[in-house]
Write a protein that binds this DNA or RNA. Structure first.
Lengths: 183, 183
DNA sequence: TAGGAAGTCTCGATCGTCGAGAGATCTCAC
DNA sequence: GTGAGATCTCTCGACGATCGAGACTTCCTA
C-alpha cells in the first residue's frame, strides 16, 4: 500500500539522521579523548584527507574547508602545533604559503580510533552479498546527491526550482535575522 | 573475489562518511540562515524531538542532550528565548523544573527547511521497491548499531572486547593528553 | 518538619572566533 | 627589471559561548 511505502521512506530518513548523530558522537569521543574541540577534529580530518589525495593542505585552504577566518585558522594551527598533531612548513615554491603536515602520532591516533570503526563496519557488511551491497551503494549515492544539493543552496533560496512550495515563513525569517548574527 | 568485496565495503564506508558531512552542511546552512550556532541548532532539534515523542524537554535534560553544563544551558535558553524560538514555562507539577516549548515561528522555520529535504529524500526513494527499501533499512540498522556501540565506549577503552588489537598508540595518547584539556 | 537531593540560575574567568589591518611574497603589465 | 595590485598568513583588540563554583528554590523522605 502507498501508506506503508511512505512510512518506510520516512523511517529510512529517520535512520539516516540517527546515523549522522551517532557518527558525530564518535567524532566527539575522539575529540574528548585528545583534548580537541570540534573545529580541531574537522581540521585534522581535512589535513589527513588532503594528504591522502596527494594535494597537501595549506592554511588558507584549511580555513575554507572548516569555514573559519584566517585569524581563527592561525590560532587553530597554533593549538594543533603546540599539541604536536601537525607542523607548519613554508612552501618552497610559494613562500607566502604554509603547508601543513600531520605528525606521526596524530596519524596513528586517528588510524587507531577510526580504523577500528572501519574494521567493525566492514565486519558488519560481511553478511551482505555483492548485489545487496551494490544496491546499498546506489541508494547512498542517490541520497548523498539529494542532500548535497540541499546543502549547497544559496541562503533564502527554495531547494528545488521545480517545486517552489510554501517558502514564505523560512525566507521571511532568513531575511529578518540574516544580519543579526553576532558571534 | 574477496578483494573486490573488501573494496566495496570500504567504498560504502566512505559514502557513509560523505553522507554525514553533507547532512552536517544542511544543518550549518540552517544555522547560518537563522543566526544560530551549532549548539543552538542541536538544542532546537532536541526540543522538537522531545515534543514529538510527547515527553516535553526540560532545561536539565537538554543539557545532557547537547552535552553542556547547566550554566551554559541557561545562557543557551536566554539566547533562544530572546530570538523568539522557544519560551520557558515553569512545570506546575515540579516547580523546580523549566519546561521548554517551541514557538510557532521556530516550528514552521524548521519544517520549511528540513521538511523540504524530507520531501526530496522521499522522492529519491520512490524508485526503490519495498524489498529494496527493507534491505536498505536493515543495512542502516546494522551500521547504526556498530557506530552507536563505538560512540558509547568509555574513553581509552578498546572498541571490541573480543579483538584487543594494537591499541597502544591510542590509549597512550589518551592517557597522556587526557588531563591537558583546556577549553 | 528537618535534612538532603534535585533543578535552575548567577557570577567571574577562560578560550575560540571575528573583523580590521599589517607584513611578506607572488604575478603581471610595462 | 620595476612597480602595482593580488594573495597568503599573521597580529591585535574585542566579543561571546562555555566552564566551574556556588546560591537559591523546590521536592522528597524519614
Amino acid at each position: 500500500m502507498a501508506e506503508d511505502a511512505a512510512a518506510a521512506r520516512l523511517h529510512v530518513s529517520l535512520l539516516l539522521r540517527r546515523l549522522t548523530v551517532e557518527l558525530d558522537a564518535v567524532g566527539a569521543r575522539f575529540a574528548e579523548a585528545h583534548g580537541l574541540n570540534p573545529t580541531d577534529v574537522r581540521a585534522l580530518v581535512a589535513v589527513m584527507d588532503a594528504a591522502r589525495t596527494g594535494r597537501p593542505m595549506t592554511a588558507g585552504r584549511l580555513g575554507e574547508a572548516v569555514g573559519r577566518t584566517s585569524a581563527s585558522v592561525t590560532a587553530l594551527l597554533d593549538r594543533l602545533e603546540r599539541m604536536g598533531h601537525l607542523h607548519r612548513v613554508r612552501d618552497a615554491d610559494d613562500r607566502r604559503r604554509v603547508v601543513l603536515e600531520m605528525s606521526e602520532t596524530a596519524m596513528s591516533a586517528g588510524a587507531e580510533h577510526f580504523g577500528g570503526l572501519q574494521r567493525d563496519l566492514a565486519a558488519a557488511m560481511e553478511p551482505y552479498s555483492d548485489e545487496e551491497l551494490a544496491l546499498v551503494e546506489r541508494f547512498l549515492q542517490d541520497v548523498i546527491g539529494v542532500v548535497g544539493r540541499y546543502a549547497r543552496l544559496t541562503d533564502g533560496g527554495v531547494p528545488r526550482a521545480e517545486t517552489p512550495g510554501p517558502a514564505t515563513v523560512f525566507t521571511r525569517r532568513a531575511e529578518q535575522e540574516g544580519g543579526t548574527r553576532d558571534h
